[in-house]
Amino acid sequence: MYVVSYFTDADEALHLAYSHDGQAFATVNGGRPVLRGTVGTGRLRDPFIGVGPDGLFHLLATDGWTSPLIVHASSADLVDWSAQELLPVMAGVEGALNAWAPEFFLDRATGLYHLIWSSVVEAGGSAEGRDFEHNTQNHRIWHCTTRDFASFSAPGLFFDPGHSVIDATVRALDGGGFLMAYKDERGTNDLHTAHKNIHLTTFTIPGGPYTASAGPVTPSVVEGPSIFRRGEEMVMIFDHYLEGSYGASRSRDGLAWERVPLDLPPGMRHASVLKTAHLPALSALSAG
Rank of each mutant, 00 (worst) to 15 (best):
F149T: 15
T8C: 04
R252F: 06
A101P: 08
V4T: 12
Y18V: 00
L191A: 15
S220C: 11
A61E: 01
A10F: 04
A10D: 13
A13N: 09
L255Y: 11
D148C: 12
G254L: 00
L173F: 07
M1H: 12
G31A: 09
E103I: 00
H134L: 15
R250G: 08
L264P: 02
G95E: 06
S272K: 01
F159R: 07
P68W: 06
R250S: 14
G125Q: 10
P33G: 09
T188C: 11
A284H: 13
D184P: 03
I70V: 14
D21A: 04
L242M: 09
R43P: 00
H72E: 14
L14D: 11
R45L: 12
H192A: 14
Y210H: 03
P161K: 01
T110D: 11
L97H: 06
S67H: 06
D184N: 05
A61T: 07
Y246W: 09
R140K: 14
A150H: 14
T110H: 10
V34A: 13
V79D: 13
E94K: 10
D21T: 08
G52W: 12
Q137V: 02
A154R: 01
V51Q: 12
P261T: 02
S119N: 03
H195S: 11
H72F: 02
E103K: 08
R250Q: 06
V121P: 11
S164K: 08
F105P: 02
T66H: 05
S249T: 11
A99D: 03
E232K: 09
A287L: 15
Q137D: 06
G224M: 00
P280E: 11
G247S: 03
V39W: 09
P33W: 09
L279N: 06
